Simulated assay, not measured.
Amino acid sequence: MRNLTFLLQKEFRQIFRNPTILRMILMMPIIQLIVIPLAADYEIKHISISVVDQDHSPYSRKLVQKMTSSGYFQLVEYTQSYPQALQTVGDGKTDIILTIPAHFERDLIKDNKAKLHLAADAVNGVRAGLGTAYASQMIGDLNREIREEWMVLPKFNELPQIDITSANWFNQHFDYHLFMVPGILAILVTMVGAFLTALNIVAEKEVGTIEQINVTPIKKHEFILGKLIPFWVLGMVSITMGVIVAFVIFRILPLGSYLTLYAFAAVYLLGILGIGLLISTFVDTQQQATLFSFFFMMVFILLGGLYTPIESMPEWAQWLTRINPPAYFIKVIRAIYIKGSTLTDLWPDFIAMIAFAIGFNALAVFNYRKRSA
């Protein structure tokens, strides 16, 4: 116990003597937590549209006005030439081309049907898909308005109508900040825990102090705990600062208990720190540790459910998320913030995090003992 105390004193002094580490632990997550949710807007607006109007009728002008006044479309070009509009797509100025053919209004009145053509720049598939969906919905709204104008009904005869009411549970106003901020907080804590812990031990290897430690009476598990506990404490501080930033900047508070949040964070940090310690046992330089950490962070982010729902991933990817610790913590922290979930509700995830913490730290201790014997 005395050896562990000396190691903890050494680690905290070493950390506080290095202002770069403190800035990375404290300032970097705060700045990223503010900037990323403001930039990563899920709502796509100002879709550029070029209109090829070969009809110039009241109905065609009404359709163009309806789309441009919605706030989702920005009119780039209004022309009669489709090749000219297509050139703006090639130049990257237009996302959607709406072609209104000649005699559009006449065909609609005479034959009760007319055709429109939508062409989308599919380089950005998400933007093209949403733009086409928005445009199709507005065309459908115009079609319904026209049908209501033409409809002739007997007096006092009511048109059968189905009313749809909806309720948006947990996120009534579709505020994407409520969804993104907790997930980004989980990823930032992961970066701080795994990356800095790996670099810390590798730095000891590079300067040669780890050999001096190995010849002392300090036991291997004491050495691991001495490296793990300081960053665990700083990780909990980072979580606290993230919670404060989420409230001050985005006015987001967890609906669930803070005790539940910190219980999960404490166990999760132990697992993530174990990953950093495990990485450090396989590498000899900080450059190697950085590359390994970067590789794992890419996997954590892409398979964590931060941007892409896990349920929409291929089946093999969904299996990989079951051994991906951030996937559990992102799910948990969102459930606590948005749904007010309790420890009882999230008990299977808590057990999984305990298993990760025990497993990764046990592997780190075992592998460190084997390589330094």
Rank of each mutant, 00 (worst) to 15 (best):
G235Q: 14
T79C: 09
I333P: 01
L33N: 01
T165M: 12
K115N: 14
I239M: 07
E211C: 12
L278K: 01
I336T: 00
I47Y: 01
P254Q: 02
Y328P: 09
V202C: 15
A263E: 09
F295I: 14
R251M: 10
A133D: 10
F350Y: 08
H56N: 15
R61K: 13
G242P: 02
Q287V: 12
V245A: 04
K110Q: 08
L261G: 00
W169I: 13
G242W: 02
H46S: 10
Q161T: 15
F356S: 00
R369F: 01
L108W: 04
V215G: 05
L199F: 13
T165V: 11
Q65F: 14
P309F: 14
L291D: 09
N214V: 13
M180Q: 02
F6V: 08
Y328N: 06
L343C: 07
R144S: 15
V202H: 08
S166Y: 11
L98G: 03
G305R: 14
E77F: 10
G235P: 05
K110N: 15
E222C: 04
F329H: 03
R369V: 03
I244L: 13
F295N: 01
S341Y: 01
F195A: 09
G140I: 15
K331T: 08
V52D: 02
D91A: 08
S81P: 02
I47C: 02
I34G: 03
R61L: 13
P254W: 00
H103V: 08
A40R: 04
M28V: 07
Y78D: 10
Q65V: 15
L277W: 00
P217V: 10
Y78Q: 13
V237E: 08
A352F: 00
V64L: 08
D163C: 05
M138F: 13
N171D: 13
L188T: 10
Y134M: 06
Y328I: 15
I15N: 00
Q87H: 07
I336A: 00
A102E: 14
P326S: 14
M151V: 10
Y258L: 05
D121E: 04
G140M: 03
D91C: 13
W347P: 09
T216C: 03
K45H: 06
A203H: 12
G140H: 05
N143R: 07
A167G: 03
P314K: 04
N157A: 11
F250I: 07
L277G: 01
I224Q: 00
Y72H: 12
L4M: 13
I213K: 07
D95S: 06
Y72M: 09
I330M: 04
T281C: 12
D41M: 11
M67I: 04
M353A: 03
M313F: 10
H46R: 11
E11W: 01
A266C: 09
S69I: 12
Q286M: 15
A122V: 09
Q32K: 14
A355V: 11
T165G: 09
K115H: 08
D95R: 02
S280Q: 11
A327W: 09
L320Q: 06
A198D: 11
K205R: 15
P182M: 00
T321V: 12
A194N: 05
E105H: 05
Q65K: 07
W347M: 07
M27L: 12
G125P: 04
K155M: 01
N324Q: 13
L86M: 14
S372D: 09
S70W: 06
F360H: 00
